[in-house]
Nucleic acid binder design. Sequence first.
DNA 1: TTGTACGCGTTATCAG
DNA 2: CTGATAACGCGTACAA
Lengths: 355, 355
Amino acid sequence: MPPAKERTRRIQRRAPRDVSKTRIGDVARAAGVSTATVSRALTFPDRVQAETRERVLAAVRELGYIPNSAARQLRAGSSRTVLVVVGPRRNPPFFSEVLRGIDVALSQAGYAVLMGNLDSIDGKEKYLVDLVFGGHIDGALVLASTVPSHAGRTIADSGLPIVGICAETDVPGIPAVVVDDEVCCRAQTRYLLDRGHRHLAYLAGPRGNYNERHRYAGFQAEIAAAGLGADDFVRFEGNYDFASGVASGRAFLALDRRPTGVVATSDEMAIAFMTTIRRGGLKVPQDVSIVGFDGIEFGDFVEPTLTTIRQPRFELGSTGAALLLAMMRGETVPDRLTMLKGALDERESAGSVIE
Amino acid sequence: MPPAKERTRRIQRRAPRDVSKTRIGDVARAAGVSTATVSRALTFPDRVQAETRERVLAAVRELGYIPNSAARQLRAGSSRTVLVVVGPRRNPPFFSEVLRGIDVALSQAGYAVLMGNLDSIDGKEKYLVDLVFGGHIDGALVLASTVPSHAGRTIADSGLPIVGICAETDVPGIPAVVVDDEVCCRAQTRYLLDRGHRHLAYLAGPRGNYNERHRYAGFQAEIAAAGLGADDFVRFEGNYDFASGVASGRAFLALDRRPTGVVATSDEMAIAFMTTIRRGGLKVPQDVSIVGFDGIEFGDFVEPTLTTIRQPRFELGSTGAALLLAMMRGETVPDRLTMLKGALDERESAGSVIE
DNA sequence: TTGTACGCGTTATCAG
DNA sequence: CTGATAACGCGTACAA
């Protein structure tokens, strides 16, 4: 009893996705046109007669038709999705605003944002590389100084547009949008030197980190410009978070001869440091002056309020996203660094040396 | 001269995605097997002879083959992508940790996270609805009390698994993972009442907000249990951010008869409020005691440190994600609220009334 | 155990 | 301006 021949064929198991059950064919039938016309009416409205278009759009509304994105992507070769790679556990109050800049710019252009946090689990890098080489992605924004890689190839090898934000990446040739770390850190340092501080502390970021290298270079340059040398400052290692600010503060308190001015390379470190040394009995800014880096809102709500370098956080994100969008459109763009300006926000945590 | 018939056919323009140029056919050829065998060797390794499998895997490695995700998705009906909807501009220091919990849980299960920030631009809700109905998504986590909707249908109407986190959503039948807001707010309030405060201030969240409703209910319940009434507290409107903490602080300072205890429904409001009234000359906790809500790290670095309700932020995210994963696997799950416990962290910002 | 061949839903090409 | 139809790359039912 084998008359089921042609039915058997169709038994390919239907996956559990009964979402969006109306397909383009349903709309075509309802509107009395071909699927090609439906597709055109949606993608190039003016290449279809007004009357026909109306009929199609009415059917679309009626049936609640929404094109299947997988099919569209397979055919068109574009997913309208951007991967945003965030490095291991960097300070949320700072990055959240950069991410908002990214999100606003990409959303406006109709792109979705896929999050790629590197601090979450092992195997994440391989996962991200697969994502990129699997064609799931049209471009990537890297908020870290290392580009995800696995088995000897980085996501940059895919040839997809990539833009770095907040740091230059370790892969050459990838454009980046950054703040001028060196200039900003010089400004921090000079601010203290100008106020008579002759013995400084430098609260560092992670060794080797892009921002850290440039900020430290700026710090040293300014130290040298003031005729000071290696004996005139103390460097404390850190990684931009609260914990390292606390650790630096404790080490600072234990010093025999304490600096009077502190250059912190993140606001979180600055705040934690400040709290720690105040608990240790020091007064800010009377005993110690502190200048932070980032410009997070919390700086306004600590005691005393934090003098700091304000980074254009939102613009870092939105500018980087705009650059990526241009690259994805195939435009030629500046292939090196785009530098945004930071600004020194003068508040209460730093003052002049009292003779 | 029309012998180009069959060549003409093949001129379909190749989209600008030359990423992952090796297709399953290339691997098959290199390994001397059929495409079906390659597919099987990757998906069901044990349904293929060991020797064949090795040859296939070698070819895969050799060519750096990674399956095209669009094609796979079209065929399989699953994108292994979860949409995370975040409500308009809620405090980053709090949510970042919830998001981390989500990311860890989903990454481990091999799911990608698509960000859906609602505060970015107009038309975002339509976009999210299209995403969901376009089959781009396998499930959604909603960190807001309203489910994205457009043109009369919500993403819940897609039938896809959805879980709320931090709040119950406005669509019935969607399970949610929350903290027991009412109990937590009662604990805050009781903490102050127990220390002799008989005149309180309540710093509210946005009217109608899920958390706000429950916290306020808890506050009022505890007030009533202490035999107090509407004359014994002042309510300040707010929306969980710094600005509303500052505004409440100013209004507080202008009061003729000031409360001695303050129940703040977010740490950011608590901190901004505290800073504002201290600048106004009041001492915390000597003049005014403050209890916050959330448990963000900054509470440790303000002066005085903040007594607060610590929410299990990471667990809110990871538990919600785990629930969603179970639903996507087709398992039956508790279809109502999963309540996690908060804890009161006693620090310095609240003390006893001094007679 | 492996190979053949079809169809997932859409868009782009080409012919009318 | 519109319709017919061939791919896009993969996974699977079925035959061998």
